[in-house]
């Protein structure tokens, strides 16, 4: 188990915080760690800031993430990793599509010319939109409180996808599946970072598997051609017990 100390915290939305910590390690965009709160639990966490200063950006959605947000600067954090296959970076113009806290794993890819399609439930939950210039940003919200009302596809329709050298997307699986179908229709390549129930993080427990691939080890980033052969993508997943359920 690796230990580090929290340096500072930034509240990003009513439910999301960025937590900065000191860790002298090479980590690549899209990789994650398994973060442990002793006595509470352990969850996967993508690293949102990978420069000299590291940070993760955590949404409060359960007991362990709530316990992480309750920590203060100076407190110790416990984690193992980094794990997972990172995003493959390309030179040229990139489009980043993030749904909700999915923006966190895309954050390391943001550069001066990147275009952002930031999707959220409502205005309050929009994450990292302020890191894109106005002309390089489209926002969609489910409730229409900011930007285009509707899901990420409504935003995609406003963008000429063919002018990008690579498209990166992260968010809920339903959103990613719809985006995947849209990319396929338009005929563009993309890298999608998926999320599923994860226990071991090292490719042996089978909890996060999708179509025979272990998301924690073969992914979480997958290319379009890999997603094509995964019968379960956007379709079925296993619960914490291993029970097959429709997505």
């Amino acid at each position: 188990m690796i230990t580090a100390f929290i340096k500072r915290k930034e509240r990003k939305t009513p439910t999301v915080e960025t937590i900065y910590f000191e860790w002298d390690s090479g980590i690549l965009p899209g990789q994650f760690v398994m973060i442990w709160v002793p006595g509470v639990g352990e969850i996967p966490m993508s690293i949102s800031h990978i420069g000299r200063e590291k940070a993760f950006t955590v949404k409060n959605y359960g007991p362990t993430s709530a316990a992480i947000q309750a920590l203060s600067p100076g407190d110790r954090i416990f984690f193992r990793g980094p794990y997972g296959r990172p995003f493959q970076t390309v030179s040229g113009r990139i489009l980043l599509i993030g749904g909700g806290s999915g923006m966190a794993s895309l954050h390391p890819l943001i550069n001066n010319s990147s275009f952002g399609l930031v999707a959220a439930r409502s205005k309050e939950e929009i994450l990292f939109a302020d890191e894109f210039t106005d002309e390089n940003l489209i926002i969609t919200t489910d409730d229409g409180s900011e930007g285009i009302k509707g899901n990420v596809i409504e935003g995609l329709k406003k963008i000429d996808l063919k002018k990008f050298d690579m498209i990166y997307a992260c968010g809920p699986e339903v959103m990613l599946y719809n985006a995947y179908l849209y990319f396929r229709k338009i005929g563009v390549n993309a890298q999608l970072s998926l999320e599923r129930t994860m226990k071991c993080g090292i490719g042996i427990c089978d909890s996060c598997s999708i179509g025979g691939f272990q998301l924690c080890r073969d992914g979480p980033v997958f290319f379009m051609n890999e997603l094509e052969e995964m019968q379960e993508f956007g379709n079925f997943k296993l619960t914490y017990s291993g029970k097959r359920v429709k997505i």
Binding site: G203, I204, C205, D206, S207, S209, I210, G211, G212, F213, Q214, Q231, E232, L238, G242, R244
Partner: peptide
């Protein structure tokens, strides 16, 4: 080990 999901076992 890797034997909860039918697709993983098949692979």
């Amino acid at each position: 080990i890797l034997d909860e999901n039918g697709y993983t076992m098949k692979k």
